[in-house]
Design a protein around this nucleic acid. Structure first.
Lengths: 143, 143
DNA sequence: GCCCGTTTCTTGACTCATTCAAGATTTCGC
DNA sequence: GCGAAATCTTGAATGAGTCAAGAAACGGGC
């Protein structure tokens, strides 16, 4: 994706096209599951003088528009990704925090139907699988 | 549940029985989904002089032992509950943050099997349903 | 292409949940 | 009861994220 594509995305969501936003969108696309600090670093490779606030604001605007998704497993800082709306989920490593994508096993939005929703109107089901990543499994065997 | 039961639980998990831990366990049992501050307040009704650190330590010990579960939806502080090991999940209200329990629709641990786990060894599937609670639905209709 | 109202960005201070550290106290097997 | 190890108290520190005020940039309309 080039900057032109990012601009398209922004305009399509009725968002103003600003340099920080384009750079943030690029950074999130290139660094899936990156935390805010990583994104800030990546953005500053293109725009050395962006403020961290601009990055926070951009991420919030992009999330609200549904262009990026914010994920935050327990014990982790906020992370972002651009794969949205395809009903995929995440596996998180308990020991190193690594995150991987997992496509939904059962077709489309299977878990969206709770047995008893207590009167809540549910619009999204978020699934996080907890476990151990291959690297940490290997590391544990060595000890 | 009385204190004797809590002590049993602690001993059963090979944890030392201390007054802060018993009080914390009681507070979490009585206030499902409470955040740390609420728990601290509840604990201090019994033990006025506990330090916040003791509460943090107790919660960490109880979580590690599997007696309480820590949940932390995006944008929320850490919350705790004592219903563990029964494969139930949560609905979180996007506007007020209220949390309700949801029993798993499909029997036991259905979503535990990811289609492609990327080599991760998965031991738990955590599901969070996002939506709007009855109260907030009513409030929105009024506006 | 330029103007102007609105949105967004910069700067810098601030909040607050959580963690860290050192020393005092408590627990529990013996 | 005794002593080693775990736990608690006290108090300071960390750090992701937020708030606020003014400056700059965006883009619709001329």
């Amino acid at each position: 994706m080039g900057n032109a594509d990012y601009e398209q995305l922004l305009r399509g969501a009725s968002l103003r096209v600003t340099r920080p936003r384009v750079a943030v969108l690029g950074a999130v696309t290139e660094h899936a599951h990156a935390d805010t600090e990583t994104i800030l670093g990546a953005v500053r490779e293109r725009l050395p003088d962006v403020s961290h606030q601009a990055v926070y604001d951009s991420l919030a605007a992009l999330s609200a528009a549904g262009i990026v998704r914010r994920i935050q497993p327990s014990g982790s800082v906020a992370r972002y990704e651009t794969r949205v709306g395809d009903n995929h989920h995440h596996v998180v490593c308990r020991s190193c925090g690594r995150i991987s994508d997992v496509d939904c096993a059962v077709g489309h939005a299977p878990c969206l139907t709770a047995s008893d929703d207590n009167g809540f109107v549910v619009d999204e089901a978020e699934i996080i699988y907890w476990g151990t990543c291959p690297q940490c499994q290997a590391a544990q065997l060595e000890n």
